[in-house]
């Protein structure tokens, strides 16, 4: 049996898809058979972030409607053993799939994978309901901003009401320098406000932009964000990885300090 994890946020643009791509990649790096499902029907993106956009033949809706077999729609990521993507449809909309069909889809993948990762669309409408329907646990992504946290709170309320068994928080795009001078809410502030356990914080790292440009996830690479994502994956596997606050070094001095700290 696999564990089904939904990555959700409420607000758009906080890094759900990037988080899904990197957690999927990280789990595969750690040796887990992983499939990522892009549930954002009509606005597919996970394929692009993964750099797999040119290999799509069939999609999630094709599988649900029986136009193809599951095996035909799954894209194997040649860079990582055990990593697969089920892309979304670009020409349809959220109403093409209902929660029951999504649960059936997830069920069909249970035997072949250790982890099934669902990248949820923004919003709280049908797309969200589809994505969370078959999930065992939820990762709520937010950034340290008033609007994103407000939406995360709403999502947490909905997940609670829907009996989601496990909910964890990921605080994305933390700027350590801004937190230090008091111009950004700290991870502690966010945790205090949302009252959901934290599974990791991701520093605002320009390596993410570069990685997305190239279509190459950075989980596991020697970057601050890459390490933070891999740490989250380890925690998902049940490893006890201490929660350290992300510390991206901006500039040479910071980088040196980072090196010294790591040594």
């Amino acid at each position: 049996m696999s564990e089904v994890i939904v990555v959700t946020s409420g607000k758009g643009g906080v890094g759900k898809t990037t988080t899904s791509a990197n957690i999927g990649t990280g789990l595969a790096i750690l040796g887990k058979r992983t499939v990522m499902i892009d549930t954002d029907i009509g606005l597919r993106n996970l394929d692009v972030v993964m750099g797999l956009e040119n290999r799509i033949v069939y999609n999630l809706v094709d599988v649900v409607e029986g136009n193809c077999r599951m095996k035909q729609a799954l894209i194997r990521d040649k860079r990582y053993p055990n990593l697969y993507l089920l892309p979304s449809a670009q020409t349809r909309d959220k109403s093409a799939v209902n929660p029951e069909q999504m649960m059936k889809l997830v069920e069909d993948l249970q035997d072949d994978f250790d982890y099934i990762l669902l990248d949820c669309p923004a919003g709280i409408e049908q797309g969200f309901r589809n994505a969370v329907a078959g999930a065992d646990r939820a990762l709520v992504v937010t950034t340290p901003e008033v609007s994103a946290i407000r939406d995360a709170d709403r999502i947490i309320g909905l997940l609670d009401a829907g009996q989601m068994r496990s909910i964890h928080l990921i605080v994305n795009r933390v700027r350590h320098d801004m937190v230090r001078r008091g111009d950004m809410m700290s991870v502690d502030d966010v945790m205090d406000i949302l009252a959901v356990p934290l599974i990791g914080a991701i520093p605002d790292d320009e390596a993410i932009v570069i990685s997305t440009n190239q279509g190459e996830p950075l989980a596991g690479t020697d970057t601050a964000a890459g390490q933070a994502f891999l740490d989250i994956c380890r925690r998902l596997l049940g490893e006890d990885v201490p929660l350290t606050l992300p510390n991206v070094s901006y500039g040479l001095l910071g980088r040196l300090a980072g090196l010294l700290k790591r040594a």
């Binding site: 901003e145 008033v146 946290i149 937190v179 001078r181 008091g182 111009d183 809410m185 502030d189 406000i193």
Partner: peptide, 12 residues
């Protein structure tokens, strides 16, 4: 007041 604290208060 620093904007981080303002954000936290508005949010709560």
């Amino acid at each position: 007041k620093r904007s981080g604290a303002i954000a936290a208060r508005r949010l709560k």
